[in-house]
Design a protein around this nucleic acid. Structure first.
Lengths: 134, 134, 134, 134
DNA sequence: GTGGTCTAGACCACT
DNA sequence: GTGGTCTAGACCACA
């Protein structure tokens, strides 16, 4: 049990949703890194563990991890599985949390424009939704 | 009291984008109905016409129209083309423009929460993005 | 006004239903002949009149009349429009009302079999539906 | 506890008949779900398999499956094929076998009324037809 | 003229 | 392996 502490990381996926499972994992891990929930060097649960827990295909988890490795967010520690990169350029880029939020807001702005919803109404709705979140 | 001839309805699609063409058409028509640009009873350009104009396959257009028909947004006038449903429940649901915008904003709120971005910062970013739209 | 009495015949069609309009007209007229509501020699409303009343295309009415003429149910009286055939073989065949009802019941029996509904339950449901009709 | 492998599900279609092939498939699968022959979670033969077996185009099969998915009868397991929805509202509605039979019987009752056929005669004919089915 | 159906075959995304 | 998307082109039914 000399492993680097129990990685109490939990992922959630919604199968049969529009977004691919591997993509949901990638986004989720990025957000956890950005918010500091996953610090540099922190270990990630093994591919097999995630696969069993979420009842998904191991290859799907592997694809997510590989993608994040390519992007420099995760590193492969031989014999120890994946860990969050210490301060690689990849991780650096993710630290800008606003940048991660922007794409979705841009899509919302696009939709608002096409629906002829003015800025005030759109912002009001966003505020309402944010408050409803908790 | 003649019918609004020459349906000057124009669609735009971005091929080679991630979103399927038929889906782009579906979303676009829904927004046009929602914004009142396409009123109840308004005729839609024929499948062939759209296909030629956008240089896509008629079946792709047909698929979009069929989907909208099952959703109650469009009605088929046998041998006479498609028209926007008069006041079907489907169309009704679409009339609420804010409701159409909400899902995306909810996703944004969800992401903001996971990123530990506070409400003020999120709203500020949304305002910035909205202004950037034009 | 020397026309053979006002043909108080009324047709009903449900547009945007599965069954073609001309077919609905054909079936309806056959049933009216079978039940005696339209006796031999009785005049039918003109193509134009039916088309205007039901707000459908005259060609559709014409197609129904022509089909019935081919089948010997109607006859074309020059200058007088269509009338029910006096006792042509076509009309004769229609006089068997049960035969007209049979196809639909056969389809029902087919469906009941595929649904594994036994005869007793199917008949019980039919009785219930018949009583509900009035 | 292994999944019910070898889905011995067989479909039959009559090409060159009036009813579209995809519609025949849809109806057939609905009846199989209704009669319990296809339980919730049961896997369906792959699009390609059905296409080869019935010697029809994969897209035709795909269209049937897609329709049943939008109706909530089937679910897509990403990359793993289609299965019968566990207990979706769509499936639920189908479980009532009598309800599936009713529309046809109502049409028959309607026709009987228009033909002035009394209830007794109509039921007698239905019994006769049912017996003739086997 | 309208939309609907089907085919044959290619390519892509997900697991 | 799975289903999804799109194409090009043919034929049919309806009004």
């Amino acid at each position: 049990m000399a492993f680097p502490r129990d990685p109490k990381v939990l992922f959630v996926v919604s199968p049969s949703m529009g977004i691919p499972i591997y993509q949901q994992l990638v986004d989720q891990i990025k957000r956890m890194v950005a918010s500091g929930q996953l610090a540099g060097g922190a270990p990630l649960p093994s591919v097999r563990e995630v696969a069993v827990t979420l009842a998904i295909n191991p290859m799907t988890v592997s694809k997510a991890y590989s993608l994040l490795e390519t992007q420099g967010v995760l590193s492969r520690r031989r014999g120890m599985g994946m860990v969050v990169s210490q301060d690689a350029t990849g991780t650096q880029a993710i630290r800008d949390r606003l940048a991660l939020l922007r794409p979705t807001l841009e899509r919302a702005a696009e939709e608002a424009a096409q629906l002829h919803i003015d800025h005030g109404a759109a912002i009001a709705l966003f505020e309402k939704v944010l408050k409803g979140k908790r």
